[in-house]
Design a protein around this nucleic acid. Structure first.
Lengths: 214, 214
DNA sequence: GCCAATGTTTAGGCGAACCGAAACCCCCTG
DNA sequence: CAGGGGGTTTCGGTTCGCCTAAACATTGGC
């Protein structure tokens, strides 16, 4: 199908990401905010992406990916997450430092290099934040998860994923030794209990960034 | 100083590359041909680069880098060659496959990642083709070299460098086991003698791509 | 059931990087 | 030393991705 530019890939990726952990489709306004650009710019690009068959859009309505669009989006997400994993595993980056670098490289590496990195890393299925890495065919292994902020007090589970949006939260959790795979129990919206039994206060907004097993 | 765009970096890199192994400065026409763009586009960008203090140019004259321009150019070359080295040493690329990938990545990696790769590789001083990797301060260790095509019959030396411009030549030399460090003697413009004593016919133009010790 | 707030689109513009066509300059040849 | 040809520049035009300002659609509150 049509080739995609870096800018277009960012749109598709952001639309995809919006529905990855919650169901409502994204609106132009939210997309503009996430991308840090003006709403009118979104209108314009949306027109092109719709014409190319990557998104479905009725005027004044929300934005949804077509199967072709979802394919492109997962391809970009795959790149992004493999690059993050590579930076952490091979080059000494910490999980709060990888996002910006991956944001650029995801548009620059060839398929050849992508698959070489994938093989080099042993075909990982999750990135350092616990986000699933889509397979080359676009398929993703999804696990049911609850946002810590939505979990009832007393709920105990394993950390599946931590949103990479706020590096501050990532650093505070790393300092506490909390990451994907950690066991913890919810005490209240701002406190968790660690396996050893001690209570740990969460950084502001951290409860809205941590997903636990159901 | 002023930031540089990927396009501007390509201009500076190409101007620098032109004088790396021969003295005459480059002309707009040659630069346009090397970059695969129209001469009028070169005029335009040259105006900007001159205004920003990266190149010196009198109308209708050749193009030369200023110290600031040379700094930028060597920085790009450093990126390019470290990336090539990394692709070959870590990811199973062969020396004829790395150029295009590096061409893109050289504009995409951060300084942080560049230095991480450099450290990871143990601060190499030459890339897979034998081209010197400039240091972070722009300095380059240069060794006197003769082009095989210019060497007199009977001249014996070590291969210092093979131009990466033609992948076909690179593949033919790799098949013969010839690369930087190989010892060989010039028989005539199209034939060399290998250490074991056997004569080896060179691919067309290969003599114009191989540099030997003096 | 109207209307204002909010969100979306249209219209006009801008800078970057490219193009082809035409004008221009330089210098070599006759 | 006069052309003429090749290289260089100018000029107007294109695409891409973004902008602001203004027009327009939708919807929730009264």
């Amino acid at each position: 199908m049509k080739p995609t530019t870096p800018a277009a890939e960012d749109y598709l990726k952001t639309i995809y990401a919006h529905t990855e952990w919650q169901p409502d489709p994204i609106t132009p306004r939210v997309l503009a905010t996430r991308l840090g650009i003006a709403p009118s710019s979104v209108t314009e690009m949306v027109k092109k992406l719709a014409a190319d068959g990557f998104i479905a859009h009725v005027p004044y309505g929300p934005l949804t990916l077509t199967p072709a669009g979802r394919m492109r989006a997962t391809a970009v997400v795959r790149r992004h997450r493999l690059i993050e994993t590579w930076l952490v595993r091979e080059l000494g980056y910490t999980w709060d430092e990888v996002h910006d670098e991956a944001e650029v490289l995801e548009h620059a590496i060839s398929d050849r290099l992508l698959e070489a990195i994938d093989a080099h890393l042993g075909h990982p299925t999750a990135d350092p934040h616990g986000d699933p890495i889509p397979a080359a065919d676009g398929s993703t292994a999804r696990v049911p998860a609850v946002l810590l902020a939505d979990a009832p007090p007393g709920h105990a589970g394993t950390v599946l994923r931590v949103s990479d949006r706020d590096p501050t939260i990532l650093r505070s959790l790393a300092d506490a030794g909390i990451g994907p795979g950690s066991r913890l129990a919810v005490v209240d919206a701002n406190t968790v209990r660690l396996p050893a039994g001690e209570l740990h206060p969460l950084a502001p907004d951290a409860a809205g960034a941590i997903w636990l097993t159901r």
